[in-house]
Each structure stands twice: as structure tokens, then as C-alpha cells.
């Protein structure tokens, strides 16, 4: 019989080692796989995508910035540029490089795959928004044109990705979202968020942490060189201009805004109280959102609080005759206009 102490130590060691190897997202196995995926093909495609974006934003694409985006040395980056050029996807004139039509097509195909995959992740999987971009960055290189077509079909040919960016059509048309940066929005105007840039991730995570999402209505209170103070739905945010610049907005016509922003979250109602649904926040998306609509929770529906779980969550609501329990994370996203008791009596 093995000495128990030695067996114990070996056991702990084995557990520890397997955690080191198999731990999702940071284990050795995962890193190895990630490294293997970083082939020339991927680097070429990333190069094309980068130059495509630079051209659209009318920024010069330099070797340094390319090496930065690919996170490789400048030597390796120029190697990749040479291969890309040899394939006829890229043209060099002096220090500047630009895409050939074939290169642009490939870049658009990658962007299309990327945005469709993000749409897919947002609508038909349970991944959170901070996971979308990372995953799409890897998948965009693996989806063939046919895969992309199939994906688009299965999603009902969506038009925009979950960040509000338009998805290029299979023919390669790409329209712009036409918004302006939130940092440029005049004070006291309200606007709808049409797009949130998901790169760099550091800034994106900050925006998501503020609970800001495409289709939300915002109103700017104050703009100074160090900060932008604004309201969204029901709370105030303060962001640095550099962060706010990554949010694109389209100014709203006056009457729409009043209608959209009214209402309190459903989860603030108490047992016995009633409210009329005014809006469902765009934060609720995909299957979850459709389910709410199918249950009859649409603007104008009367919702009464029936009972609360002994622990405080979920809460059961009477919705069009049926008692349906929702969690507070869902009810929070449903905005209602409270109905006072007098109003209730009149309606009866």
C-alpha cells in the first residue's frame, strides 16, 4: 500500500497539472490551439481587413500599425505584406499600400463573416457581449463563403451586427451606419445609439459595463474636454471623450424621444401594483426578447404584480390573464408606466 501522504501529494499534483493543461481559455491546451491557428492565411486576412478599415476611415495604413494589429514583429508584418502582394490582393506604391478589387472582396467577405458570427452569437447563443468579438475574430477565418451564406440564411439574413454595424451583403455592398460620435453630439439633444465600436477591447468593456447598447436613447447634459455627462434610459453616465467617441449616435426627432424614454423598470413595482408596458429595452435581445413578445408583453400591455418569491426573485406577474414568473434581470428591462388606483377604478 502506498503511503497515504505520498498518495495525497501525488493526487494533488495530478489535479493541479490537469487544471493547468485543461483550464478553459487560459490552459496550455487552449494556448497551443490558439498558436496553431495563427497561420499565414489568418495573418493575410487580418492584414486585408486592417487595410480595408483604414481605407474606409481614410487613415493611412503603416507598417508599424499593421505590426501592432497583428501583434507580430515588423519584419514578419512586411513578410506577410509581400505574400499578400504576390497573391494579387494588395498594391504597393512607395510606402503606401492599397487593396486590389480581389483584396477588397476578400476583406468584405471576412467582415461579413465576422459580423454575421457576432449576430449569431448574440441571437442564438448565450454568450455575453464581451465574448462576441473575440470569438468572431477566430471564426471569421474558418467560415467559407458557403458557410457564411448558410449562416446568414439560418439567421434570416440579418442586416446589422449586434454592435449596430451593417453586415455587408453577399454581393459586397456595405452601407455606413451614418452616425456621429457621441462626443460630438451637442448638449441637450437626444439621440439613438446606432453603433458601438468593439475595438479596442479595453474601451469596449468600459462601455458595456455602463450598460450602453445599440438602439438605446441617450441625452447629453454636459460636454467638457475631460468628460461627457449624459443620460440613458434611466441613469446618468460619465465617460471620457475618448471612450464616448467609440459610440456612434443618430440625433432623434423630438417626439420620438419623449415616447421612448418614459417609464420605470417593471421590477420596481410592488405586489398588487399595476403598470402599462411602455417599452422593452434593447438590452433584451434574441430568443429572450422574442419570448417576451410571444408571452404578450408588448407596449400597451397591462401587467400586475401577483406575488414574489420568498427570496425576492423571481416575481410572478399577471399578463393578459395568465400568471407568469420573470426574473428581476428580465423585468428590469421592461419599462412600465404605473397605473394608479384611481385609474384602475375608472377602467373597471
Amino acid at each position: 500500500m502506498v503511503d497515504p501522504l505520498i498518495a495525497l501529494l501525488i493526487g494533488i499534483g495530478v489535479l493541479f497539472a490537469s487544471a493547468l493543461i485543461f483550464w478553459p481559455d487560459s490552459g496550455l491546451l487552449w494556448r497551443l490551439q490558439k498558436r496553431r491557428e495563427l497561420t499565414d492565411k489568418v495573418l493575410i486576412e487580418d492584414t486585408l481587413k486592417f487595410i480595408f478599415k483604414c481605407e474606409r476611415n481614410q487613415k493611412p495604413a503603416t507598417l508599424e500599425s499593421l505590426a501592432g494589429v497583428l501583434s507580430t514583429s515588423q519584419g514578419r508584418a512586411s513578410e506577410i505584406l509581400a505574400i499578400t502582394q504576390a497573391k494579387g490582393l494588395l498594391e504597393m506604391s512607395g510606402k503606401r499600400f492599397s487593396l486590389t478589387p480581389a483584396g477588397r472582396n476578400t476583406a468584405i467577405q471576412i467582415v461579413r463573416a465576422h459580423r454575421l458570427w457576432e449576430r449569431h452569437l448574440a441571437d442564438t447563443t448565450g454568450f455575453g457581449e464581451t465574448d462576441w468579438h473575440q470569438q468572431a475574430e477566430r471564426l471569421e477565418h474558418k467560415l467559407s463563403v458557403e458557410d457564411t451564406e448558410r449562416l446568414s440564411a439560418s439567421l434570416g439574413h440579418p442586416t446589422h451586427d449586434p454592435h449596430g454595424d451593417p453586415i455587408p451583403t453577399s454581393k459586397g455592398d456595405l452601407v455606413s451606419h451614418g452616425g456621429l460620435p457621441l462626443s460630438d453630439l451637442p448638449v441637450q439633444t437626444s439621440a439613438r445609439i446606432v453603433h458601438i465600436e468593439d475595438e479596442p477591447e479595453l474601451i469596449y468593456v468600459q462601455i458595456i459595463a455602463e450598460d450602453l447598447h445599440p438602439n438605446m436613447i441617450v441625452e447629453v447634459d454636459e460636454t467638457t474636454p475631460d468628460r461627457i455627462r449624459f443620460w440613458s434610459e434611466d441613469r446618468e453616465h460619465v465617460l471620457a471623450p475618448i471612450v464616448a467617441a467609440n459610440i456612434s449616435v443618430v440625433p432623434l426627432v423630438e417626439e420620438n424621444h419623449v415616447q421612448d424614454i418614459q417609464g420605470i423598470p417593471l421590477d420596481t413595482l410592488l405586489v398588487g401594483e399595476k403598470g402599462k408596458v411602455t417599452a422593452i429595452s434593447p438590452l433584451s435581445r434574441g430568443v429572450e426578447r422574442r419570448r417576451l413578445f410571444d408571452l404578450g408583453i408588448i407596449p400597451g400591455t397591462e401587467v400586475g404584480v401577483e406575488m414574489v418569491n420568498p427570496g425576492g426573485d423571481p416575481t410572478a406577474y399577471r399578463i393578459r390573464g395568465s400568471v407568469i414568473a420573470l426574473r428581476s434581470s428580465q423585468a428590469r428591462l421592461i419599462k412600465v408606466d404605473p397605473i394608479t388606483e384611481e385609474e384602475q377604478e375608472i377602467s373597471q
Binding site: 448565450g126 419570448r291 408571452l295
Partner: peptide, 16 residues
């Protein structure tokens, strides 16, 4: 939180 992170998650419970 790990392998099933990507599966769709919704909640509603009718109390008949």
C-alpha cells in the same frame, strides 16, 4: 460558467 456558457438561456415560468 464554462462549457455551457454559449448555450441560449431564457427564463419564463407559467403558474397555471
Amino acid at each position: 460558467r464554462t462549457v455551457l456558457k454559449g448555450e441560449v438561456s431564457t427564463f419564463n415560468l407559467e403558474l397555471p
